[in-house]
Design a protein around this nucleic acid. Structure first.
Lengths: 174, 174
DNA sequence: CTCAGTGCAAACCGTTTGCAGAACG
DNA sequence: CGTTCTGCAAACGGTTTGCACTGAG
């Protein structure tokens, strides 16, 4: 903080590697590298959470940046296109974003329906599923989405019960 | 059509079994059984597609029914609660609905990113995944969502290519 | 200097809600 | 007959877009 030479210059030597990657992408595409884009990228790459746009806006505000929502959306679009960031929809009515530079290159999500905590896990079985699908259906998988909803350990230990109001085994009782 | 005794009466003897099931659910819940609810249920149970609300509205219009969108949404909510119908979000910006009275009780979806065709497939591997997750993470699965996006056979045969614009293997090139 | 980016506010669009009148039970 | 439903239209909320201004290259 004391030796940083002021530098309003965006995405240059001082930047962390993942942000430089985004700069590379932008240059590759012939797009300007702006301080706003850097700021949004920094928030996303710095966090290990699944961030909503509001989360990102809030984080930016905390660090003194004042960036419009539209710019955040537009930058996220670029980040997703660059494949540095992944977009998720956990059925909350809005999207979440997660950078792809973690130690878990490919992973799926466990989502607690009680406390909304998201846990990540890996699954080789999915490769088997994709191979099977390729063979049996002639379908070429490109990407997938596997989310398992249920109760996380701590909610179970807290004694949370799930209520079922629907018809049970409807087929049988016709 | 000729012998039907006019009957504006909703969800009674003449109705197909799955619609009677919905009537049973409504009565169990102490809710009125209305002709609108019957009409919406009939459209959903009659189709083997993944219907959007617009699809349903359109089908109702074709059969002469004039039912407001709000009522369709409200009825779908009841159908989902009753567990007779499943709600899907294939990332199109709106929901789709599919009844659960088919021959494939539990199935996953293959979604063609080119032509948007949805194919269903079953996967025992998923049970294995859920069991593993139960053991390794203490997570109790309740429901899941597995969607594989890619190219269906006919789009591949039609020579469709997917364009990749993002950075390839970003981690390596820092 | 030029072209794209930014910020604001308005538009969008699927979905939800409030309310007066109609229907179920 | 009271309670719930229906239909309309307005509200909602996340996301997108149009446009004048700013800034990157």
């Amino acid at each position: 903080m004391t030796e940083t030479p002021k530098a309003a210059s965006p995405i240059e030597e001082g930047s962390p590697p993942f942000i430089r990657l985004f700069g590379r992408y932008l240059r590759d595409q012939g797009l300007p590298v702006t301080s706003q884009r850097e700021a949004v990228a920094k928030v996303v790459f710095t966090s290990e959470e699944h961030l909503s746009v509001d989360d990102i806006e809030h984080a930016l505000r905390l660090s003194g940046e004042r960036i419009g929502k539209a710019t955040i959306y537009r930058t996220l679009d670029l980040l997703v296109r660059s494949r540095l960031v992944e977009e998720h929809d956990f059925g909350e009515g809005f999207k979440r974003y997660e950078h792809r530079l973690s130690n878990q290159p490919v992973h799926e999500h466990l989502i607690c329906v009680e406390c909304a905590t998201v846990t990540e896990f890996e699954s080789d079985e999915l490769y088997r599923i994709e191979n099977r699908v390729r063979g049996e259906h002639g379908f070429m998988p490109v990407r997938h989405r596997l989310e398992i909803y249920g109760l996380c350990r701590s909610c179970q230990e807290a004694g949370v019960q799930l209520t079922t109001e629907g018809l049970i085994c409807p087929i049988e009782i016709i």
